[in-house]
Design a binder for these strands. Structure first.
Lengths: 197, 197
DNA sequence: ACATTTACGTCAGTCATGTTGACTTTTTTC
DNA sequence: GAAAAAAGTCAACATGACTGACGTAAATGT
């Protein structure tokens, strides 16, 4: 099973087509431990991309997450955000209040149900959210380009989806497609005032 | 499900021919934002796998990281660990002390340089570290199996490596290969009672 | 030999972000 | 009109990061 070459230094750079060694419970270390570690290091770089910008506003990574998801889903309720982030409303409350106070997020009462607070990014908030997406997208683009073929994007997406708990995938994919569709809609209706400013 | 191409599939194909929209604030969202979000959700699931076990010992994720890396690199110095984890020695100190006090990690003075504290997992610590690796490996194996072909592992590895800052890759790859080689060595010398096939 | 540097540890304080639990207000729903 | 839901708030606490200062032992350089 572990006849996957461990020694050649090029192991990481080259994809290797060795077999994954189906022995889930016990041993099976060698070929998968590196994925565990690469995932750790990659994610650490990934989330630290926005740090410098965040620091300029006195924000942390929690602010980034909140801003990102509100930007992706304008008009979302506080409860929706809690479901996505899986934190308590007390934790969210602090961060959200700062974002609202500093004019990055706007919170309006729902029209059909006035108990709800619907969350929107302000233009200022949208600009910041776009900066973050641009930063992280640049890293992903570079990575995909390094991977070569045009199938790299699909491969990465498939892998990441498969890494998610099956029971979480439905909601997450629904969330993503809905947000993408809404963004596309917006782009069609109001083309192009962006990127100029 | 995996072809969440909600928008014109052109973006990535054009990625190289067109300009990569490098300047912050340019357009270019649709196909990459989903990767950003999938990375977030996937990593969250990934790191929460060991939580239940950790809680049984009153440990947190910091303990997991320390134990993992010490297990991977027996005899590593405290400074090495600090370099890898990129935290301060004060932060590491607390966690490390708890792991030593509870008998998961052993800290011996170096023989050639007696200022050094060389870190080793105890049998108890090794068992725990192996549990964590088994848990996370199971998720990765399942994901790779879902991705289909035998090239899925290589694809994932390439993608993750490419997501890492280029200047970090050398040290990280060196670390991983060295650890793999040492582990292989150990397996050859002392074929444990544990390792299945 | 002595000064410097290195490796490690520790005290003291702070910050960011998470947690529980209890409670209120407003509004919708049954 | 009672119950439930959405949101907000207060208080207390845990974790894991941070800075800065200081101490001690051992290696190293001149």
């Amino acid at each position: 099973m572990t006849d996957v070459n461990v020694s050649p230094p090029s192991r990481l750079a080259e994809g290797d087509s060795g077999q994954p060694a189906r022995s889930a419970g016990a041993a099976a270390s060698p070929p998968l431990v590196d994925i565990i570690e690469l995932f750790f290091f990659a994610y650490r770089n990934f989330v630290s991309d926005p740090d410098e910008i965040l620091a300029r506003f006195g924000f942390g990574r929690a602010h980034h997450r909140v801003l990102h998801f509100v930007n992706r889903h304008p008009g979302m309720r506080v409860t929706d955000l809690l479901d996505i982030l899986r934190i308590t409303k007390q934790s969210l409350g602090r961060v959200l209040r700062e974002l609202v106070d500093q004019g990055f997020i706007d919170s309006r009462a729902g029209s059909s149900d006035r108990r709800q607070r619907l969350l929107y990014v302000t233009p200022k908030g949208e600009a910041l959210a776009r900066d973050f997406v641009a930063l992280q997208s640049a890293r992903i683009e570079r990575a995909l380009a390094e991977c070569g073929g045009p199938e790299a994007l699909g491969n990465a997406r498939r892998f990441l989806v498969s890494m998610i708990d099956p029971e979480d995938r439905g909601p997450i994919e629904k969330f993503i497609t809905r947000a993408d569709r809404a963004a596309e809609e917006l782009r069609r209706l109001a083309p192009g005032p962006r990127s100029g400013g």
